[in-house]
Write a protein that binds this DNA or RNA. Sequence first.
DNA 1: AGGTATGTTAATTG
DNA 2: GCAATTAACATACC
Length: 259
Amino acid sequence: MPELPEVELYTRYFAEHALHRRIARVRVLDDRILGAQRRATFTRALTGKSFTRVRRHGKHFFAAAGAQWLHLHFGMSGDLSFYRDEQPRFARVVFDFADATHLAFEDMRLFGVAELTPDPDAYVRERGLGPDPLDPQFRLSDFRERIAGRRGAAKALLMSQEVLAGIGNLYADETLFQTAIHPRRPADRITPAETKAIFTTMRKILRTVIERKARGGSYPSRYLTPHREAGERCPRCGGTIEKTVVMTRTTYFCARHQR
DNA sequence: AGGTATGTTAATTG
DNA sequence: GCAATTAACATACC
């Protein structure tokens, strides 16, 4: 599930519950979640430490502990659960704190990763991740430079983590819906005005969704997201929502106002 | 039973 | 050679 807004909420959740508690024990319940790292390396580095601060870049989460950073990627089904008694069914890594509370990293489908990294900035650089759209340093001019020369589908552009870090299938569709751009439009046929609209609208969407979800709310009714079903009425123009596949991903759009 | 799922990457194609 | 596309990954649920 998680894209940038959801990972932002996980980050806040982690900061609220898991910071400054002594890690008495680290339990890895399925080694496949660790990627290339060895279990002993992972558990040894974190045991006895405590998480002191958190960071997020796109869909990537980092928490400082001692000299290392815990890096989590939530894949398609990752989630966090802070609890006292009931360990979640799909917990893959559990941090047992000294005060008898626990934080579980759950991931049913195992596309996620839990690992250590010495430096989040270096990680982002080495991975070639693009800027976080909500970073105050991120400018329209940066965005223009990053998309220059690209020819693929508009949707592929927004979903590329090298262009921008954090947009996935859902918010790519939502951004294109609100800027009236067809998901298959070639990137080199997006006008400068549309590029600016994407830049502004995308960030507004991310901020709005974070705020709404933080208060336990749902998506605005004029958004595409609550109408992600073929045959639904478009809340902007009254057209019909269509379902198709773009770059192997299920895509919803309004064939009347998205061109 | 089969298709589907809000992600990433390795492999393949153009 | 580089950019764009596709296949593969693992698992539960409708």
